[in-house]
Amino acid sequence: MKKLITALAFASLACTTALQAQAADPKTELAEKIVKLRQGPEMDQLTSQLAGSATQDLIANWAPRLQNNVPKAKQQKASEALNAELKKYADDTQQLISKQVAKVSKDVLVPAYAERFTLEELQQIAAFFESPAIKKYQTTAPELGNMFIQKLIDASRADVITRAKKFDDAAVKIVGETAAPKAGGPAKK
């Protein structure tokens, strides 16, 4: 009986050691570390953009309905109510997407990093993302990106408006100047 208990104890120890060895794969550990280091303001911005894109789809669907189904006198109030609901939707959607980041990162990115990079490369990448300069960059990159985008929009606005006017002029020649039919209404021939 004592030999059986000893044998079971050794077998259990061997299994535990094997599992720890699998879990302690240095490449996987470094890949997990890199994925965690990559999370931050840029990932927050990505989840915000994804939620914003989903919100834009709703706006495109419901804006014409607001115009066509709600009397003009009530459109302002209805618009405010829809905007409040859109904000709730956008916030909820961003949270739902954010909750999936860790799981998808672990399922997709960790194995991809471990497969594509050597241990030495993973160590270098981890050191890179741990450096104070990169941490500062990750913190300020969204703000700098927004500044750049705003200045780019400002700098190109006049040219884009001019080009839109040219498009409108060409479209009038092709389609004519009649008002567009209301969404959902029959088109005139």
Rank of each mutant, 00 (worst) to 15 (best):
P186D: 14
K189E: 15
E29H: 03
E32K: 02
G185P: 08
F117I: 04
L37D: 04
A21T: 12
P186L: 05
K165Q: 15
A31E: 02
A158Q: 15
S79L: 07
Q22S: 07
S156E: 15
A102Y: 00
D44R: 02
Q39N: 13
Q56M: 10
S53V: 05
T178V: 11
M43N: 06
T6Q: 08
K27F: 03
R65K: 14
T93V: 05
S12V: 07
T93F: 02
A63P: 07
E42L: 11
K106C: 01
K182D: 15
A183I: 09
E130I: 10
V108R: 01
A112V: 04
L30H: 00
T139M: 09
F129K: 05
E130C: 08
A31H: 04
S79Y: 08
R157W: 14
I134N: 04
A171Q: 14
W62L: 11
Q22G: 07
L82A: 13
R163C: 11
K87A: 10
M1W: 11
S98P: 01
A171T: 12
K106A: 03
G145Y: 02
K106S: 03
K88I: 09
R163F: 12
K99E: 00
K188H: 12
A60P: 11
I97D: 01
K77Y: 12
K173R: 13
A155Y: 12
I134L: 06
R157I: 08
A60T: 15
A81C: 05
T6M: 07
P71W: 03
Q123A: 09
